Amino acid sequence: MLSKTTDDATPTATPSWQEQALCAQTGPEFFFPEPGGSVNEAKQLCLACEGRTACLEYALANDERFGVWGGLSEKERLRLRRR
């Protein structure tokens, strides 16, 4: 899980959805695969997660450009932002 910091490098509170998210039970490599790697399994796990919507909103609000967030890949989030 990624944690956000303020300008003075003080960690901010972890959003409650992150603490209970299914991704917290897997390693980050699952959601941040090597270039050319598949994100299908990560997206399937996201579909079963109750925090999926909050995760996607977080990723869009914080301009997360890498990995699977809220069930969407980088390219899918970019297309969503452009709409």
Results as ranks from 00 to 15, higher is better:
83 R>P: 03
73 S>F: 04
38 S>G: 01
32 F>M: 12
83 R>H: 08
23 C>I: 00
20 Q>M: 11
1 M>S: 14
2 L>Q: 07
62 N>R: 05
74 E>L: 06
17 W>M: 10
28 P>E: 15
40 N>E: 15
12 T>Y: 09
47 L>W: 10
83 R>V: 11
13 A>W: 08
13 A>H: 12
11 P>R: 01
34 E>H: 14
77 R>Q: 04
5 T>M: 14
58 Y>A: 06
60 L>S: 01
55 C>M: 00
77 R>K: 07
3 S>Y: 15
23 C>G: 07
63 D>A: 13
49 C>Y: 06
36 G>Y: 13
8 D>P: 07
2 L>M: 03
26 T>A: 15
18 Q>D: 07
42 A>H: 05
12 T>H: 07
33 P>L: 08
81 R>V: 02
30 F>S: 11
24 A>W: 01
35 P>C: 10
28 P>C: 09
71 G>C: 04
67 G>C: 03
80 L>D: 00
59 A>T: 03
18 Q>P: 06
59 A>E: 04
43 K>Q: 15
20 Q>F: 12
48 A>F: 09
35 P>V: 03
3 S>A: 13
67 G>M: 00
15 P>Y: 07
43 K>W: 00
3 S>F: 13
42 A>M: 01
32 F>S: 11
81 R>Q: 08
59 A>Q: 03
78 L>H: 12
3 S>V: 15
53 T>Q: 12
48 A>C: 10
68 V>M: 04
53 T>C: 05
22 L>H: 06
50 E>K: 09
55 C>S: 00
38 S>M: 08
77 R>L: 01
67 G>T: 04
48 A>N: 12
30 F>N: 09
42 A>L: 04
66 F>C: 07
41 E>K: 13
58 Y>L: 03
65 R>S: 14
61 A>D: 08
27 G>P: 06
64 E>T: 02
65 R>P: 01
4 K>W: 06
17 W>K: 09
73 S>D: 00
24 A>T: 08
77 R>V: 02
5 T>E: 12
44 Q>L: 13
3 S>L: 14
46 C>A: 07
76 E>M: 02
71 G>K: 03
44 Q>C: 08
59 A>K: 07
38 S>C: 11
80 L>E: 08
39 V>Q: 08
34 E>L: 14
12 T>P: 03
43 K>L: 04
27 G>W: 08
42 A>P: 02
2 L>F: 10
36 G>L: 10
57 E>V: 01
5 T>L: 15
28 P>Y: 04
12 T>G: 11
44 Q>V: 12
35 P>H: 05
11 P>Y: 04
51 G>R: 06
47 L>M: 13
67 G>N: 05
25 Q>R: 15
29 E>C: 08
64 E>S: 06
50 E>F: 01
82 R>E: 15
57 E>P: 04
36 G>M: 12
15 P>W: 06
41 E>N: 11
10 T>P: 00
56 L>Y: 00
49 C>R: 01
36 G>Q: 07
37 G>Q: 10
29 E>T: 13
62 N>A: 05
70 G>F: 00
13 A>T: 13
58 Y>R: 04
70 G>L: 03
41 E>A: 15
58 Y>W: 10
83 R>D: 12
29 E>Y: 13
73 S>P: 02
31 F>M: 11
38 S>W: 10
22 L>W: 00
65 R>E: 07
57 E>H: 03
73 S>H: 04
15 P>F: 09
12 T>V: 15
16 S>C: 10
49 C>V: 02
83 R>K: 11
4 K>N: 10
35 P>M: 07
43 K>S: 03
